[in-house]
Design a protein around this nucleic acid. Structure first.
Lengths: 158, 158
DNA sequence: ACACCTTCGTTCGAATTTGAACAACAGGAG
DNA sequence: CTCCTGTTGTTCAAATTCGAACGAAGGTGT
């Protein structure tokens, strides 16, 4: 027999997909981090916080909900929201219906910041990822990674 | 005119691909990190160091070369190799042909560690990514992300 | 031999991230 | 109401990460 407890290793294609994913992810993050820092003084994480807030109704989200969207730890979010608060880009507001609850809310300055930071960021995402791929590749990527994300999400919560 | 300096925003498919990439990447890392830590006491980064070393001729690599493969900073690698050295999994060896050079080399314990850690890690990568996708999706993913990585690499070095 | 520029790996301080522990509260079962 | 369980956001110490600066050495051209 070939497999007495022998794991199924990754074949060449599988390995290529996995390595490609890891490497592209690291490389991309590195570049985006640099661009955002140089261009707007924001980390990628901070930028994403602003984006998610600006996409939310009332430009505000509960801390836990925001942490879920960002796929980060609650404590990490607490830290970053405090930073953004110091920069005047975000404000904390307490939740009426739940005394424990805290809303992170975009300030006017925060809206202005995201308006100025977005174009350069999007342009780089295009240059490094989107415009490098064909329409078909993009569609497959979206579908595939959507599936993966959905599975991971539902498998993590319970 | 539609675009007086207006950036080309991402359409629905493009956004889905990009968000999928970011989210899947974060979720995956999070899960793998947890699994490796619980199962073997290694971080993902440390695991990858061991893997790259074990795949290299002589189970050893120069620090800079290793940092490139890992897509991490040199200082970050210095730190992690020191940690692995303390665990007895990796040893530093000076380079004969270059006094400044340092080889990171896998120890016997390191080889044993990777042998024990790999199956669980690979199984999870399979469960969360590889086995979730079809053969075609995997092929496209590998091809697409390979292209992206290659472009990023060549664009970063100069 | 000399000056010049690059490369190598480390060190340093600052920023960030994490999980565990925590206090305060919400929501239901009884 | 009262106990019980789960949630919410924060705090804390520890671990990790990064970039800049550094000393030391390689490599090249003159």
């Amino acid at each position: 027999m070939s497999s007495l407890n022998e794991p199924r290793w990754l074949d060449q294609d599988e390995m290529a997909a996995w390595r490609g994913f890891v490497v592209a992810s690291n490389l991309l993050n590195r570049r985006l981090e640099r661009q955002l820092k140089d261009d707007s003084g924001l980390s990628h994480q901070q930028y994403e916080i602003l984006v998610h807030l600006s996409a939310a109704p009332g430009d505000s989200l509960r801390m836990t909900e925001l942490a879920d969207k960002l796929v980060t730890s609650k404590s990490g979010l607490t830290y970053q929201v405090t930073q953004l608060e110091r920069m005047g880009l975000v404000a904390r507001r307490s939740c009426p219906s739940d005394v424990r609850g805290v809303f992170a809310e975009l300030t006017d300055q925060g809206r202005e910041m995201i308006r100025r930071a977005a174009p350069g960021h999007v342009a780089l995402v295009r240059e490094l990822l989107i415009d490098v791929l064909t329409r078909e590749q993009l569609a497959v990527l979206a579908e595939a990674l959507g599936t993966v994300s959905a599975r991971l999400r539902q498998d993590d919560t319970p």
